[in-house]
Nucleic acid binder design. Structure first.
Length: 570
RNA sequence: GGCGUUAUAGCUCAGUUGGUUAGAGCGAACGACUCAUAAUCGUUAGGUCGGUGGUUCAAGUCCACCUAACGCCA
């Protein structure tokens, strides 16, 4: 059995994420992790919060808290929401961890030794009032092109012209509004990614099974204009990982920290170390996942992310790893997603537009969101969330097709045979047809899940649920019972086994409902079926069960209308 | 402005390397069943595959141009 390392893009610490963020990385990663575990694979599924950088500092200041405290609190909040959505991380780490500090500094040292770090003198805007250097986007002023008075230092949002902070007329700090700004000399480290361009290009070319979204973005960055550009990896900030060359000081870089995009992906590795520490294991426990010289050769590493994160994962992070010349594991498969839009527009954190993770869980259980989001995952293009579609999909798929099936067969059995799997009868042509159909669908479902075809997997799973209803409708045990109780017993026994089977194979999508189904049959640890034949022979005659409560209550029109207006944004 | 992605039935989407009458789910109409959360099952209707031109014996599927939406531009 292969071992699988799975990481989800790490969410930024600054606030609660919306459903678009969730479906773009953490949720599909969880689906895949749960599936592989269910199939008996050894899985290490990691995620963390991305905690460094200016936005975190500003959010902390706004909350009136020290940035470290703020991050610790928000980490706890995000961890709780992850649990709420049943995200089955083996560890949910923090990019501010001791391990990440050490590892980030280690990589910088190795890259420098390999001649891949360049020291560059640059001019940057410094705010005397804020006592800090200002990133381009935190400088506001009047656009020289269109006269818009809230243009940012990197771009004018009104006329979309690319700008340099020094282009702005009457520049001011976006943080304090102060116009007491000056341009200062400062020194920064650049990662010479351009040196690795051909290596990265060849590596990307070898990945023929990646989504086009992934490779097209990577290729574009590699070949656009002058090709892959070097990137600054340091910043003049307080909050971050101090610039060091391994364990040594880095003369001339005192008081500076690594830029967040450099240390964030390294947290994928550091997180494994945090995991082994939390588990009370020694270093070899995590190194066998990450070091190809220490046992990670048989690991298959899959990353999940939204499309905005693709450049970092296809180019910058691989450049860091390859450039270190150390035997770190590179990503094998990279699954990227487009955006989820909300009633015709974008989700927006700043405008409070859309649905956020905490709000979602306040109105409905995780399974509802998991099902809708995964069955509508933005794989081939952006996907739109609408309340009407959500209501219809959830009611039909979960309540009618799956939930009602479990309900109808367990209640039928209870009324005719009692709460035990009935004995007697033998399979006939109808049953053979059903088994044949299910065997085929199960095989397709497994192949699609293996290939991380999220939407198609959901479709296939739904079709399997529907086959249960088709079967009952065809053989009609309620009629058979009147003339041939033995045969009705066989049909009912098969129906109950189908419900049990659905419970097992649905767990990656709807883990809570799956658990309820299996508990009602008293088989919480039921394993993945080897075939349709064994799947429908798990519950033997005489096996006791209880009728579960309604698995999925329907969303009413009143609820939908209320939520629609509650979440319309302002 | 440059680049990229997308554009297929009312809605959400599938359509492998170009090859017989373009598919699914939802919604709609009709019918069946009555065990079940008025749930389920079946049948039917519905598309000149964004537009124009081209390559080919043959194009939704390749090429060019155009249009629209979305995104990225370090």
């Amino acid at each position: 059995m292969a071992r699988h390392l799975i990481t989800s893009a790490i969410p930024y610490i600054n606030g609660i994420k919306h459903l678009g963020n969730l479906v773009g990385s953490q949720l599909p990663a969880d689906l895949y992790a749960r599936y592989l575990r269910a199939r008996g694979h050894e899985v290490l599924f990691l995620c963390a919060t991305d905690e460094h950088g200016t936005p975190a500092e500003l959010a902390a200041a706004k909350a009136g808290k020290p940035v470290a405290d703020y991050c610790a609190e928000m980490h706890a909040v995000q961890a709780e929401l992850a649990r709420g959505f049943r995200l089955s991380f083996d560890h949910f780490g923090r990019s501010s961890s001791r391990q990440n500090h050490a590892l980030t500094q280690h990589f910088a040292g190795k890259l420098d030794a390999a001649g891949l770090i360049e020291e560059v003198q640059e001019q940057q805007v410094y705010s005397n009032a804020d006592k800090r250097f200002l990133p381009d986007r935190y400088i506001e002023g009047t656009c020289p092109n269109c006269g818009y008075d809230k243009a940012r230092g990197d771009q004018c949002e009104n006329c979309t012209k690319q700008l340099d902070p020094t282009d702005l007329i009457a520049p001011r700090s976006a943080i304090s509004g102060s116009n007491d700004l000056e341009v200062r000399q400062t020194k920064h480290l650049y990662l010479r990614q351009s040196v690795l361009k051909d290596t990265l290009d060849a590596w990307i070319d070898s990945k023929t099974d990646w989504p086009v979204l992934t490779t097209s973005i990577a290729k574009k960055w590699l070949h656009d204009g002058d090709g892959l550009k070097d990137r600054g990896i340091t910043r003049d900030l307080d909050w971050g990982i101090p610039v060091r060359r391994g364990k040594e000081e880095w003369p001339g870089m005192e008081g500076k920290v690594f830029y967040v995009w450099f240390d964030a992906p390294i947290e994928y590795i550091a997180c494994a170390s945090e995991w082994s520490e939390a588990q009370g294991l020694d270093a070899s426990a995590w190194e066998r996942w990450w070091r190809t010289d220490k046992g990670a050769d048989d690991v298959r590493y899959t990353q999940f992310m939204g499309k905005d994160n693709v450049p970092f994962h296809t180019l910058s992070f691989p450049a860091t790893i390859l450039g270190s010349a150390e035997p770190w594991k590179l990503v094998d498969h990279l699954k990227s997603f487009n955006y989820l839009t909300y009633d015709g527009g974008q989700f927006s954190t700043s405008q409070g537009r859309g649905i956020f993770m905490d709000q979602a869980l306040e109105i409905l259980p995780a399974d509802y969101w998991r099902w809708w989001l995964l069955s509508h995952a933005p794989e081939s293009s952006d996907a739109e969330f609408t309340w009407e579609n959500f209501q219809v999909s959830v009611n039909k798929d979960l309540a009618d097709v799956l939930g009602n099936f479990v309900s109808r067969i367990t209640k039928f059995c209870r009324s005719k045979f009692g709460e035990r799997v009935p004995d007697g009868g033998a399979f006939g042509p109808d049953e053979m047809d059903l088994l044949h159909a299910i065997q085929e669908r199960l095989g397709r479902y497994e192949a699609l899940m293996q290939a991380i075809e999220v939407r198609k997997s959901a479709q296939e799973l739904r079709a399997i649920w529907a086959s249960g209803n088709e079967y009952l409708q065809t053989v009609a045990p309620w009629s058979t019972f009147k003339t041939d109780p033995e045969k009705a017993a066989m049909q009912t026994r098969l129906g109950l086994n189908l419900a049990h089977f659905f419970g097992v194979i649905s767990s990656p999508f709807v883990p809570d409902a799956s658990e309820v189904i299996l508990e009602s049959f008293g088989t919480p640890a039921a394993g993945w079926p080897e075939s349709a034949n064994t799947a429908v022979d798990q519950l033997k005659a005489g096996h006791a069960f209880t009728v579960p409560d309604v698995l999925f209550a329907k969303i009413t029109d009143e609820q939908r209308e209320k939520w629609q207006s509650d979440f319309s944004g302002t």
